[in-house]
Amino acid sequence: MILVVMDHDGNELRKGALEGVSRARKLAEALGGEVAGLVVGPGAEGVAEKAKDYVSKVYVVSGPDWEAYTAEKWAKAAHAAAEAAGARVVVAPASRTGRSWTARLAVKMDAALLEDTLDSWAEGDKVYATKYSFLNRVLEKQAGTLPAVISVKPNTTPLAEPAGAGAVEPLAVELGELEKKVEVLEKIAETGGKVALTEAEVVVTGGRGMGSAEAFQMIEQFADLLGGAVGATRAVIDAGWRPYAEQVGQTGKTVQPNVYFALAVSGAVQHQAGMNKSKVVVAVNKDPDAPIFKETDYGVVGDVHQVLPAMIEEVKKLKGA
């Protein structure tokens, strides 16, 4: 049996959940058994009615104890579901939170942890995966023993299609001492884009050359127009123009969108580590020697304050057509 932990926003399954189902089905074909799902947290009962179309059985962990996410709780719920399902492999999204609680789960299960994988498969009594390492500059193939915990890098895997209705099974999981040690005091909402940065198919990143926090209104407008997310470089974060949550790069988030716009971004190695696997890279920079142009498919040498407004108008025309 393979268990897939299915991320959701309280109403709908996230894309990562359906990527996870695809991976889990592939592993189940090789290792035998079926695919079970787990949904945790606020809204889980409702989401389970959608999740059951993808798996043979979906476990639901919800209630007053499960309102706020902590890595300790999510690892506990996943462990309980893995035991209930008799799962030898657990598949989860390699979101930031996912990578935190899967590390805990792997210790609980004494499992091999295959982290942020691009692909995964099983042969004999081993699981295999490919992933990036060395700041996204090396592609490596790994083998892990069973049991295993595999996290799935966003935007790497086809989304699963529904495969008939499975059963829904509530799972009672009691919090222990450990799970009570972290108390969430306050949530700080992300400002800017409406789309999660790591899941976005379009990312529009502004660099120091934008010149001011106000200039990012243009970035936001462009991102909104394309249904994309706003990103920022370390220099922009240091200047206090944008929140840390939007940082793309070695010390920020790694994104792999269909198209990545680097606007007034010089393109330091630390920044490239966060975006160099984007499918298409577009850059606008007034310095023709900026390192970003070596990482670029389509670039404009010019002043972003003149080029970007014109790009916005062109996209509006395109959308209107």
């Binding site: 892990g144 002043d303 970007l308």
Partner: peptide
Amino acid sequence: KVEILEQQIMELERKQKIIDGTKEPAAAAA
């Protein structure tokens, strides 16, 4: 528990089609 089997440098080829937009930014944007 995990073994690294093989590593390779993974750098994507980029098209590097660069347009000069210093004189006519609107045309370059289009």
